[in-house]
Design a protein around this nucleic acid. Structure first.
Lengths: 219, 219
DNA sequence: CGAAGGTCTGAACGGTGGTTCACTTCTTCG
DNA sequence: CGAAGAAGTGAACCACCGTTCAGACCTTCG
C-alpha cells in the first residue's frame, strides 16, 4: 500500500462536506428547493458536480441532510424553550411561540422552505416527521398547562397541530411583507392568538391589573 | 364553406372537456400533482395526449383549472355557511369549521392536493389566492363576532390565517388515519379549538358563574 | 357523393436535470 | 522519486415529460 487517508485529508473532506451542506442550505433559502439543482449547488460550494456525489449518494440525500440540519436546529431551540424554559407552562408556551415565529421571520426564505415550499418526496416525508416533533413539543407544554389547571381540558395534540399550522400559515404569506417593524406587531398578535387557542384566560377583559400595553395607536 | 360547428359537435366537445377536468381531478386526488402526468390524465379521460391540448394550451392551464374548480367549490360552501348561515357569528363560525373539516376528511386526497401537496408554480400561485379567500371568509365572521361583542378584540386576519392553517395541519397528517369514527371526535376537538382560538368564552366553565372551576382531575 | 374543414391520434422531438465515468490531479509512503 | 491509489473534474449520458405535427378519421353541406 502506498496511500492511506491521513487526518489532514480527512479534515479537508469533512470541511468540504460541511461547506457543501451550508452552501446548499443557502441556495435553498434563497431560491427554494426547485432552484437548488445539483449544478447550482455545486457551483455555490465551489466544487464540481461530480464531487457532490462523493459526499452524498444522490441529490435527494443531500436535500434531506439540508432539511434535517436546519429543522433540527429549530426543533431543538423550540423544545428547549418549551420544556426547560423559565416560568409556568403558559409563559413557556408564549415564549416558545414568540421564539419560533421570530426566528422564522428572521429567515423567511429558509422558514418557507422548511415549512411549506414544494420539495421532493424524500424531503416531504422528512417534513412530516419534523412537524410531528414540533407538535410533540407544543403538545407537551399544553398537557402540562392542563395538568396544572392553567388551561381547560382539551386534546393537546389537536391544539399543538393547530399552533404549528397557524404559525406556518401566518408566516408563509406575505402578510407582513418584507416589513421589519410590522413583524413585531405580527408576533404579538400571533402570541395572543396562540394563548387563546390553547384556552388561556383572556388577559385584558378580565381586568387590567398591571398590563399597560393598551393599543395606544402606535401603528 | 362546407362545414360549420353544429350544436351537437359543440356539445360533444364540451362534454369531453368536462370529462377531462373530472378525470384529472380524480387523478390528482388519487396520486397527487406529481402523479398527474399528461399521459396518465389523458388515459384516465379516455383520450389521446394530443387531444388534451385541444382543450388546454398547456398542462399548467389544466392543472390550474382543476385547482380552481375544486377550490372554488370549497370556498363557496364555506363562505355560504359563514356569511349567510343561521345563528350568530359564533354559531356560524363553528358550523363553518365543521363543514370545512368534514368535507376535507371525506375526500382527504383532494383536500391534501388543494391545501398542501407539492404542485407546480402556477398552481402554487393559485393556492395563495384561494388561501386568501378562505381567510377572508373566516376573517369576516370573526370581525362580526368582535363587533357584536361575542369575541374579544383581535386581529381578525391573524385569527383567520390560524384557523386555515390549523385545519390544514390537522388534516394533512394521518392524525385520524383512515378511521371513520375517529373523524367525528377529531372534528369536535377541532371545533372546540377553533372557538378558543377566536376567543369565544369557554362553554362549560362559563356556565358555572360561581367560580367553581375546580380541577376535578377528569383525565 | 365529395370537397372542405374540422377533430383525434400517438410517435417523435426537445429541454431539463440527475447521474455516471474516463480521465486528470493530488497525496502518501517505500 | 515514483508507484499506488484516492480525490476531483465536467462533458456525455440517459430517463422523463411536456409539447408538437403530419396524417387518419369524421362531420357538414352543396
Amino acid at each position: 500500500m502506498a496511500y492511506r487517508k491521513t487526518p489532514s485529508v480527512q479534515g479537508r473532506l469533512d470541511a468540504a462536506r460541511e461547506q457543501l451542506v451550508d452552501s446548499a442550505t443557502a441556495v435553498v433559502a434563497e431560491a427554494g428547493w426547485s432552484g437548488a439543482s445539483v449544478t447550482v449547488v455545486a457551483a455555490a460550494a465551489g466544487m464540481s458536480v461530480g464531487s457532490v456525489y462523493q459526499h452524498f449518494p444522490s441529490k435527494s440525500a443531500l436535500a434531506v441532510e439540508v432539511f434535517r440540519r436546519a429543522s433540527g436546529r429549530e426543533v431543538r431551540v423550540l423544545s428547549e424553550v418549551l420544556a426547560h424554559g423559565t416560568g409556568d407552562p403558559l409563559e413557556r408556551l408564549a415564549h416558545g411561540v414568540e421564539v419560533f415565529a421570530r426566528r422564522a421571520l428572521e429567515n423567511r426564505g429558509l422558514a418557507h422552505a422548511l415549512l411549506a415550499a414544494p420539495a421532493d418526496a424524500a424531503v416531504g416525508r422528512e417534513r412530516l416527521e419534523y412537524r410531528r416533533r414540533y407538535r410533540a413539543a407544543f403538545a407537551r407544554v399544553v398537557r402540562e398547562g392542563v395538568a396544572e389547571g392553567l388551561l381547560p381540558s382539551q386534546d393537546a395534540d389537536v391544539t399543538a397541530a393547530a399552533l404549528t399550522g397557524a404559525i406556518g400559515e401566518v408566516l408563509v404569506d406575505p402578510l407582513a411583507g418584507p416589513g421589519e417593524d410590522a413583524a413585531g406587531a405580527l408576533v404579538a398578535e400571533l402570541l395572543a392568538m396562540s394563548l387563546r387557542c390553547a384556552g388561556a384566560p383572556p388577559p385584558a377583559p378580565a381586568a387590567r391589573p398591571a398590563c399597560p400595553s393598551d393599543d395606544e395607536g402606535l401603528r
